[in-house]
Amino acid sequence: MRIKNHPIIKDFKKEELVEFRFDDQVMQGYSGESIAAALKANGVMIHRYTRKKSEPRGVFCAIGRCTDCVMIVDGRANVRTCVEPLQAGMIVETQYGLSRKGANKNEKI
């Protein structure tokens, strides 16, 4: 899903390629890019499930405004992944309600 050849943008000015963890998978992304971009490049669409109805949510506004893309990052919940820069070794987890899988009583997934 990364754009390899673009007619106008010759260089997306990426930093170092690093590894991070998404749930139980190890993924690669560029440090400094948004966590959401790294996840999208790895094909991840679902960032969280809502608290009451357990519905999937993903990136919506990508500028830190709508909070639809929040996840648990390095143990902190509600991190806006579209504006949070990726760092090497980050642990990114799908958020269920306001917490980890298994902690939300309405959880269906």
Partner: peptide, 22 residues
Amino acid sequence: TLPGVIGAGAAQTMMNIEGVKP
């Protein structure tokens, strides 16, 4: 609310800044 519904600005951020196809 389904993942895959994005704003036009989100598409621009993804493809023109991050270099990831929306």
